[in-house]
Design a binder for these strands. Structure first.
Length: 951
DNA sequence: AGACGTTCT
């Protein structure tokens, strides 16, 4: 066995090596034994080495199945591993039995481990209790008795924690400055914080991550004097990326909630806590910089407190005398919760000095000086207040997420800043994009604020698996059987995959029987009804482990407490719009590095976490393509035009969208009559821009005036706006759900999807907006409520632009004509084989399987809401119509020959066919190209896997 | 004959 000194040196070296992923690979491939070893690991076997590294407490809980496999494995390994001999003498797990002496050692170790674990659990439970009380008694005045109790618990916890850190080798030691309860004096805290910050900047010294690595290496030594190279665990290799890749949390308020304990009122406590945030020490410098620089790019790490603190600092510094401070968030919940947190800290009622503004909910007043809002909301405000006169500071938070709205805001706000030198701009971003933002804003200063978070240990597979779902499931069980308590979060691509994983997991659990403690499976995706979503947030009962199967929703939009392990197969569905075909495609693609880091970070919220990656980060693109480059820009162009931006093609986008996308948008807006031949906005366009919906929908609404059915049309528009989430299809009740849905199609001939949606809404309204009714009809009440909100808003706007509310409920023709007024470009004609062909673009399309028209006797002509490429080119929401209406409504767009029923002449037909097939191949190459640019083996294998499972 | 990731106005 090596001396501990040597070992230390070695581990240190290897830790440094691992800072570069490349080096991990080269160094490991030079070691043949290790490589062979690893190949076998791919099978998911456990080796002696690995067993030895497991926490002692669980060593004897390894199920039989694994241990026999392991036995085989260890024999193989020992055969050609001379060094293994040494280990074998000590630990032989093979057919040979351990010596009694060894067993004794193991037993003792196990016992010690158990007690340590138990102690930790108890302390953890105490901490949870304290936190619960803080949550529960939020804002309430406590009785004296309660206060005493609470103090006792808190003091006990602090005491325990101190001792734990003093002598517990097993625990991760939080650097002094991050000690949560603040028993350490301020100066020391910030000295440490700054030290860490400057060290990292210069690329030297011990970062938190390195400290964690050291600690890990030490742990390995403590348990069995195992080899220094701790690189493979059950088929995963370790990877220690540096921290710079880590991405922003969406809401610091949440982390703040868990900090600090005191018997004072929550508001007082909240105010005190402000001083413990990492950002506090940077306050003065920050304010100086803001005073000096008009634009400042702030890189605030997770948990730095920037979202809540910066507006308060600015307010304290007097910025609000000149105008409001506006802070944008990409999500509604974030805007709301941050605002509520800040109101609490400032000690005012939400909606007074501190407020928020989101769609359907304006919680601000004349007094409001700090205003949180969604980015889309500020964009809308810009339409009425182009110079943002009522603001003195604009903060664009989470800018690295690059939502469509923030990207447009960048350019607009940059422009406004030029004419308003007094306006201050703060762009807050994650590390990766900071430089880009700075360059865009004319070399704006970048300022870094360190954060506070737990380290995450990342493990990865070098080779992706053919069937990653299988690997996911095995990993879940591996974690369940070998890792300490903590819930598991799995990132999957969609509802279908989640459901498949769920049944599969349940099946395996049955096989395992009572041998293993329980796993509680919680699926979560946005289309899941709220009642079922709630399950994810309930803590798992004692002795069981929660396994959350989530889509991307868990990446940024919602945070689940108690997650310690993340399994990340590295895929998500990405929507991209093809301007040439006017079709959206929703394809499974590899995620970006930034996403990978964000996902990994989800395991380190309540304590040190572990992330199991089923891929090699090296193969990923650094960032996701910004939305503006893959979106339908019709609405963007119309908005910009109405803001008076003439040259949209040369607009100062940070990442310009493809020119074809802009041209296509112009083309459509011109066809809709929103822009004139010179590209200037028309009267119709100005009316359309009032409605916060897609231009085709707004044209439909404006067009409904003529057909005297605006009441029906706004309902349909609202229902179409909520999208695909109206009907709910649980996996085990699909037939029932389908039947319920079809009820809205009967009674009358040719009820299309639009009319069906109208009927759904009206039926719901008749039941007085009953949730029960939704439940009985497999309809999502969440979506219906949203539709009602949108409808109410549209109703108000109808009134504003002076369109009379008219109803014509039984004249389907009128309703369909109004739909066509906006959607005439979306027409399709039935072909002989049952598929459809678009009238204007030669392209074959199909009725979506979720449409009521699917499988019904086909109508000859259809108008559809949108075109989506998933496994095929599908029309979503389609309704039957008459071809002559096309010419009646859009004579500038359709000519008689477009709708002529007679067979085209031979020459014409063959040329048509040729062009169709051309388009088909085009489409194919485009799709495969996309796959190509996305990472080779991963994607193709994933595609294979998809095919396989489908058969 | 086969199925929408996530946001926002």
């Amino acid at each position: 066995m090596e001396s501990s000194n040597d070992l230390e040196k070695k581990t240190h070296e290897s830790a440094e090596d691992m800072n570069s992923e490349d080096q991990v690979r080269t160094s490991s491939s030079s070691d043949e034994n290790l490589n062979k070893h690893r190949e076998e690991e791919e099978e998911g076997f456990m080796s002696v080495e690995k067993i030895s590294r497991l926490p002692v407490s669980i060593k004897f809980n390894i199920p039989k199945k694994i241990s026999t496999r392991k036995r085989r494995k260890s024999e193989q390994e020992d055969d050609d591993d001379p060094k293994g001999e040494e280990k074998k003498a000590k630990l032989s797990f093979g057919d040979k039995v351990l010596s009694s002496y060894e067993i004794e050692i193991l037993r003792n170790a196990s016992r010690r481990g158990y007690l340590k674990d138990r102690e930790k659990k108890m302390v953890e439970a105490l901490r949870a209790e304290i936190e619960d009380e803080i949550m529960l008694f939020h804002g309430l005045k406590l009785t004296e008795r309660e206060v005493i109790d609470f103090r006792f618990k808190r003091d006990l916890y602090e005491l325990l924690k101190k001792t734990e850190y003093d002598d517990d080798v097993e625990g991760y030691r939080i650097p002094d400055a991050y000690d949560r309860e603040g028993c350490i004096d301020q100066k020391k805290r910030f000295a440490v914080a700054e030290q860490r910050y400057s060290e990292r900047k210069s690329g030297r010294g011990v970062t938190e991550q390195e400290a964690w690595e050291d600690h890990q290496a030490q742990k390995a030594r403590v348990s069995f004097g195992a080899k220094d190279k701790q690189k493979v665990v059950d088929g995963y290799e370790f990877v220690f990326d540096d921290l710079t890749g880590l991405v922003e949390e969406s809401c610091e308020a949440e982390t703040a909630k868990h900090r600090g304990c005191s018997s004072k009122t929550v508001a007082e406590k909240a105010r005190e806590e402000r001083e413990f945030l990492p950002i506090h020490g940077y306050r003065d410098e920050l304010l100086k910089l803001i005073a000096k620089n008009q634009v400042l790019v702030i890189v605030g790490e997770t948990g730095s407190g920037k979202t809540t603190q910066i507006p308060q600092y600015l307010q304290e510094a007097g910025y609000t005398k000149r105008g409001k401070i506006g802070c944008t968030q990409p999500r509604r919940v974030a805007a709301m919760s941050v605002a509520s947190r800040v109101a609490q800290e400032v000690g005012v009622k939400l909606g007074h000095e501190v407020g928020y503004s989101i769609r359907f909910e304006d919680c601000t007043s004349d007094k409001t000086v700090i205003k949180y809002m969604t980015d889309g909301m500020l964009l809308r405000e810009l339409l009425t207040e182009p110079k943002l006169d009522s603001y003195s500071v604009i903060i664009i938070d989470e800018a690295h997420e690059r939502t469509l709205s923030t990207d447009i805001l960048f350019a607009l706000v940059k422009d406004v800043a030029k004419v308003r030198p007094d306006l201050r701009l703060i762009i807050s971003s994650a590390t990766l994009e900071a430089k880009k933002f700075s360059e865009y804003f004319d070399s704006a200063r970048i300022y870094l604020i360190p954060g506070r978070r737990y380290p995450v240990e990342k493990l990865y597979r070098r080779w992706p698996d053919a069937d990653y779902l299988e690997t996911v499931i095995r990993t879940v069980f591996q974690i369940h059987q070998t890792e300490p308590t903590g819930d598991v979060l799995v990132f999957l691509t969609g509802q279908e995959e989640i459901e498949r994983a769920e049944t599969n997991l349940k099946g395996r659990m049955m096989d395992l029987g009572t041998k293993s403690s329980e796993i509680i499976i919680c699926p979560i995706y946005s289309n899941l009804p709220t009642e079922l979503q709630a399950k994810v947030f309930e803590p798992a009962p004692k002795g069981s482990r929660k396994v959350v199967l989530a889509t991307n929703i868990a990446e940024t939009s919602l945070t689940i407490e108690g997650i310690r392990y993340v399994i990340d197969p590295g895929y998500c569905k990405i929507n991209s719009y093809n301007p040439r075909t006017g079709m959206e495609s929703l394809l499974v693609s590899p995620i970006s590095k930034a996403s990978a880091e964000q996902r990994a970070g989800r395991s380190g919220r309540t304590g040190p976490g572990k992330c199991f990656r089923l891929y090699d980060v090296k193969n990923l693109e650094p960032t996701t393509i910004p939305e503006i480059q893959r979106a339908n820009l019709a609405s963007v162009v119309l908005t910009l035009k109405s803001l008076g931006i003439h040259d949209v093609l040369n607009f100062d986008f940070m990442d310009p969208p493809p020119e074809t996308a802009l041209l296509k948008a112009f083309e459509l807006l011109y066809a809709l009559g929103a822009l004139d031949g010179k590209g200037e906005i028309t009267k119709v366009g100005e009316r359309m821009v009032e409605f916060p919906v897609d231009p085709m929908l707004s044209k439909m609404i404006v067009g409904s005036e003529k057909y005297k059915c605006s009441k029906e049309i706004i309902t349909i528009a609202a229902m179409l706006s909520v999208g695909n989430s109206v009907f709910y299809r649980p996996k085990n009740q699909q037939l029932l759900a389908d039947n319920a849905r079809m009820n809205f199609y009967v009674d009358t001939e040719n009820v299309g999807d639009h009319i069906a949606l109208l009927r759904v809404y009206n039926s719901w309204k008749e039941t007085n907006y009953s949730t029960q009714w939704c439940y009985e009809n497999f309809i999502q009440s969440k979506s219906m409520k949203r539709a009602r909100d949108i409808r109410d808003q549209l109703l108000g706007l109808l009134n504003k632009i002076g369109i009379e509310l008219t109803s014509n409920p039984n004249d389907f023709d009128a309703i369909k004509k109004a739909i066509l007024a906006g959607f005439f470009p979306h027409s399709a004609k039935l072909q002989k084989n049952g598929s459809y062909r678009r009238v204007k673009e030669p392209q074959t399309v199909y009725v979506h399987p979720n449409s009521g028209l699917f499988g019904a006797s086909p109508s000859k002509w259809l108008v559809y809401h949108e075109l989506v490429l998933t496994t095929k080119e599908y029309m979503r929401h389609a309704t039957e119509m008459k071809p002559e209406w096309l010419i009646e409504i859009a004579p500038h767009y359709y000519k008689l020959k477009d709708i002529e029923d007679s067979r085209p002449k031979k020459s014409q037909r063959s040329s048509e066919r040729a062009s169709t097939s051309k388009v088909d191949t085009n489409k194919k190459t485009r799709t495969s190209k996309k796959v190509d640019t996305n990472k080779k083996t991963q994607t193709s294998k994933k595609v294979d896997a998809n095919k396989k499972t489908k058969r």
